[in-house]
Amino acid sequence: MTMHSTQAVESRDFDRPDDVREFEHGRAEVLDMAGGTIGRFVLHPGWRWSQDVKPMAGTEWCEAPHFQYHLSGTLHVQMADGQEFDVEAGSVSSLPRGHDAWVVGDEDVVIVDWCGASDYARTG
């Protein structure tokens, strides 16, 4: 039995993203492909969502849900309900709406996000 795919094959890399959104202490590189959006977030030491992205978002907490793989660094997450935890390189995290986060230590946090990149740090 032969199976035929109806979707075109796509292969992309973040060296040529469709969009780059710069913010204090970091950037989001965004690819639109296969009917979806994927983002690579590069967050430098000193980055904190509530200081560096909140002014663009205009919300009290980050309202973008995230499903992400952590390539490097340590990210501390604080949920609106008070729960706090660290996410380290090699981990996969799923964060619902209503959180703050910040880089811990002196290493860049690099994350690939399959869920929350479409409107993250978008202006205008």
Rank of each mutant, 00 (worst) to 15 (best):
M1D: 09
T2Q: 13
S5Y: 13
S5G: 15
S5I: 12
A8N: 12
A8Y: 10
E10T: 14
S11L: 11
D13F: 05
F14L: 09
D15R: 13
R16G: 14
V20K: 03
R21W: 06
F23E: 04
G26H: 00
G26R: 05
G26F: 02
R27K: 13
A28C: 12
E29A: 11
V30Y: 10
L31I: 11
D32K: 10
D32T: 10
M33P: 04
A34F: 05
G36P: 12
G39Q: 02
R40Q: 14
R40S: 10
F41H: 13
F41N: 09
L43F: 07
H44Y: 09
P45N: 04
W47P: 04
W47V: 04
W47Y: 12
W47L: 06
R48C: 04
R48T: 01
W49Y: 08
S50W: 00
S50K: 00
D52P: 07
D52I: 08
V53A: 04
V53C: 08
K54E: 08
P55R: 03
M56I: 15
T59E: 11
E60M: 01
W61G: 05
W61F: 11
P65R: 06
P65C: 03
F67E: 12
Q68N: 11
Q68E: 12
Q68C: 12
Y69R: 15
H70M: 14
L71G: 09
S72H: 10
T74A: 01
T74Q: 00
H76F: 01
H76V: 02
H76M: 01
V77D: 01
V77E: 01
Q78I: 08
Q78A: 14
M79N: 05
D81S: 01
D81A: 04
E84W: 03
E84I: 00
V87Q: 02
V87Y: 01
V87K: 07
E88W: 13
E88V: 15
E88M: 15
A89G: 15
A89K: 10
A89Q: 11
A89I: 08
G90K: 03
G90S: 00
V92E: 08
S93Y: 12
L95C: 04
L95W: 06
P96H: 07
P96R: 06
P96D: 09
H99L: 00
H99M: 03
D100G: 00
A101L: 08
W102C: 06
V103P: 05
V104H: 07
D106K: 11
V109K: 07
V109R: 07
V109H: 07
V110W: 00
I111P: 05
D113S: 10
W114E: 15
C115P: 02
A117K: 01
S118G: 14
A121Y: 02
R122F: 03
G124I: 04
